[in-house]
Amino acid sequence: MKRRGLFYLQLGFTLLVCAFLVVPVILSIMAGLTVNYFVGIESGLTLRWVMEVWNGYRDTIFLSIGLSLACLAVTLVIGVPAAYVLAKRQTALTRALEEMLVLPVAVPGLATALALIVTYGSLSGFRTSWAFILVGHVLFTLPFMVRSVLAVLSAIDLRTLEEGAASLGAGFWPRFRDIVLPNCRQGILAGSLMVVTLSMGEFNMTWLLHTPFTKTLPVGLADAYASLRLEVGSAYTLVFFLMIMPLLLALQAFAKPRPAKFVAEDAE
């Protein structure tokens, strides 16, 4: 009986914590759908604020999507080969490189952004284009791509697999295409979702790097909260939510621990 009591106590506590986290989300969403937040739900529900956000900040949404996809493309092109090299050659140099790749995650985004502005701010064409933000995003997200591909590559016996393919006549490119890439697919997928999600939600760096013509979704959100009605800001949150949730769910599905597909035996 005593144990039963403890169980309900724990359940109650867990629910309380959940409520603490979930209620603000619900309130925020409700705020974005209510006619007048200060009057409350009695004032009625409306999509007016959402439409207002759509009309006023549509461009930030498209820019954010474009930016995150461009960021994905760049991290794929740089990150996957980088992970491959890091997995193949375990030397002091590659280990140092691996550590350095993670630096932009550890250093505050503001510092990275300032460094970029100090260094490249005078190139006005570059400074005012969205490519300037892209550089920041790539710096920030690249380690997530490299790490996630590297984790998969380290778990398989890449060297022997490649030797097997080479013994069958496959040169470097066919090997990379037929053996390396398919076998790190999981890592590439997980890394891609991570990169898109992070790029979509990045605020720190983007806030410094953006110009009035290159506002991203999170920057627009800050803008909306700062200068418009609370309902509009909340509706903005709702829009942001709808965009980021599918990505997070997909990320969760891929991040699930999977049964070992290839058990590598030790060599002699």
Partner: peptide
């Protein structure tokens, strides 16, 4: 090795999981 046309069997088999 890819130009020697030799068949090789590895201790860990090196079969392609994909």
């Amino acid at each position: 090795i890819e130009q020697r046309n030799v068949g090789m069997v590895f201790q860990s088999y090196a079969l392609f999981p994909n």
